[in-house]
């Protein structure tokens, strides 16, 4: 596939790509990130601290995911970048351009054609294959942070598998509101050992991590943590025996563009009529279903 050519509106950005090392980061940094990634894959769900680098985007804007992508990237990779299901939001476009410009790697919007997918807040609707890697950007890697502020204590809780405080948080929701009230970033138990934050993906996407064919990597740049779900790993949402985990329901609703009833839908308002309408959150998948050719 031909690398996407990008003409910059800002001429000072039109420097030759050779001014940077391949894929922006220096080789020492990439090696550090790869080593920590290998450790993360070896201990599913465990948060591995790493030396997060400075990047031309601010921390908290996807630098963890970007560092993983840049360290994994080879010249033959095809990259897709998604932001909450969209390929064309500002953040996705900037990250995609940075990757393409500094590495010359090809980019695509078609999930099936990508080898490396960096995403924020969504996992694509199309099931990923064993030859694809999903990189998720993580704002808060610590699932216990909502019940324990101290990093020292959360680490100890993970080490001792002392998760009663997390269960208490679920219980409190049931007492107050009659059901489990956690929405996105629903905590999961990985490989029967570590409780993990799956990043703010909707509950809809949780099952896509369970016994998946593909490798999922999680990068938190600001919090300086990498963790992973290797292929064919158990990822089970926390649930009580009498209050089960449930994913979002879109009963009686369909995408206004492709008519889909089996995808995660976004709620918006039709500008012309003022009515509430629904559309696929994964825009590339929606366009593909309608028979559009994706770039």
């Amino acid at each position: 596939m031909e690398a996407a050519r990008i003409e910059h509106t800002r001429p000072w950005m039109n420097r030759p790509a050779a001014a940077y090392n391949f894929a922006f980061l220096d080789e020492g940094s990439k090696r550090e990130i790869r080593r920590k990634t290998l450790k993360a894959v070896a201990i599913p769900g465990y948060q591995v601290p790493f030396a997060s680098r400075e990047l031309p985007i601010a921390r908290g804007w996807g630098t963890g995911g970007l560092q993983l992508t840049l360290s994994l990237l080879g010249p033959n990779d095809v990259v897709k970048v998604i932001d909450q299901g969209h390929d064309d939001s500002v953040n996705a476009v900037s990250i995609r351009r940075l990757i393409a410009e500094t590495s010359g790697a090809a980019t695509t919007e078609d999930t099936a054609k990508a080898t490396l997918i960096q995403s924020r807040h969504r996992i694509p609707e199309e099931r990923l294959r064993a030859d694809q890697i999903l990189v998720l950007q993580v704002p808060q890697p610590e699932p216990l942070r909502r019940v324990e502020r101290s990093e020292r204590l959360t680490r100890r809780k993970h080490a001792e598998m002392d998760y009663s405080a997390m269960w208490l948080a679920l219980y409190e929701g049931i007492v107050r509101w009659g059901d489990i009230t956690l929405g996105a970033d629903y905590p999961v138990m990985v490989h029967g050992r570590y409780i993990m934050a799956p990043t703010p993906i909707p509950r809809w996407d949780n099952e896509k991590l369970h016994q998946a064919e593909h490798l999922t990597l999680f990068g938190a740049g600001r919090e300086k943590k990498i963790y992973a779900v290797p292929p064919y790993t158990d990822v089970i949402p926390l649930q009580f025996e009498d209050y089960r985990f449930r994913k979002e329901s879109f009963d009686g609703k369909a995408c206004r563009h492709c008519g889909s009833t089996d995808t995660f839908l976004d709620e918006t308002t039709d500008e012309a009529t003022g009515f509430t309408v629904y559309q696929c959150s994964d825009t590339a998948f929606c366009r593909k279903r309608r028979g559009e050719e994706l770039p």
């Binding site: 998760y163 009663s164 269960w167 219980y171 049931i174």
Partner: peptide, 9 residues
């Protein structure tokens, strides 16, 4: 919960 009882009722 610390004693692995996970039935809310």
């Amino acid at each position: 919960f610390a004693a692995s009882q996970f039935h809310v009722g």
